[in-house]
């Protein structure tokens, strides 16, 4: 991916610290930017703080100190700001977390109707377009437990996109899937990346990182060990620790 499609910083985080009650340091002096249209992939061993970082970006986890600014809105105590950020930041979870009591269509409609105050007709139109895009429109009337894991995750992506977010966060979106279903979800994510969506992905899919990411961040013990373009990262990592990690997973 060429870096020239990348715009101004949309996510700015500065000196984030977070320690869990059990004493584990999840984030230690973590700073960085994500630019508009950029696809950032965060990799690292488990317990490195990757998911915690992602979850801090929309306020699912609280930081102990530091600042997070998303599209000019500071993520602070103000409920209004937090709500605004949650509207603009879409998130896809490892466990899909679809609403089991609603059809696929209603899952995608819900936030459009309740948060964006669209009419049901308008919302349904958008939802069907998105479900088409993730290639699952034929299951619009089905309930989540009638779908395979891969299908559920694609619905979850459509649901997050329905809010027309400026940023999409993917928290190990393929880790809970059977191997034969990983491809269909990654394809959706790749298409999204090509369309210029700003994405921050925590993943173990190195192929995906190599193919679509503008930048790869290697994290360990709550801090950035190494950061660079996919090419630099996979061909010529500078840090010994990065090389060791890559040799273990590739």
């Amino acid at each position: 991916m060429a870096l020239n499609k990348v715009g101004d910083p949309i996510i700015r985080v500065d000196r984030l610290y977070k320690t869990f009650p059990n004493g584990v340091n999840a984030l230690v002096n973590f700073s960085g930017h994500v630019h508009r249209g950029e696809v950032v992939v965060i990799i690292g061993p488990s317990g490195a703080g990757k998911s915690t970082f992602l979850r801090c970006l929309n306020g699912l986890e609280e930081i102990d100190s530091g600042t997070i600014v998303i599209d000019g809105i500071p993520l602070d105590e103000k409920k209004k700001n937090r709500l605004e950020i949650r509207k603009e930041v879409g998130m896809v979870f490892q466990q899909f977390n679809l609403f089991p009591h609603m059809t696929v269509l209603d899952n995608v409609n819900l936030a459009q109707i309740r948060v964006r105050h669209k009419s049901r007709e308008e919302a349904t139109q958008t939802s069907m377009e998105l479900l088409n895009k993730v290639d699952i429109a034929d299951k619009a009337a089905a309930f989540p437990d009638q779908l395979s894991g891969g299908q559920q995750q694609r619905v979850a992506i459509a649901r997050a996109l329905a809010m027309m977010p400026k940023v999409m966060l993917f928290d190990e979106a393929t880790s809970a899937l059977d191997p034969e279903m990983i491809g269909e979800v990654l394809d959706v994510m790749k298409n999204l990346a090509r369309e210029g969506m700003t994405m921050v992905c925590v993943t173990h899919e190195m192929g995906f990182a190599r193919e679509v990411s503008d930048r790869v961040i290697f994290m360990e013990k709550g801090t950035i060990v190494e950061m660079g373009t996919a090419e630099h990262f996979f061909e010529n990592p500078a840090e010994e620790r990065t090389r060791l990690f890559l040799s273990q997973i590739l």
Binding site: L60, P100, R114, R159
Partner: peptide
């Protein structure tokens, strides 16, 4: 499940909306 709270939170629903549309029906 916690995931239901998190997913509805991430979609921008207020606490009341989370309760009304996601948590209480289940």
């Amino acid at each position: 499940e916690k995931g239901q709270w998190e997913a509805s939170y991430a979609l921008g629903l207020t606490w009341g909306q989370q309760m009304r549309w996601v948590i209480l029906p289940q």
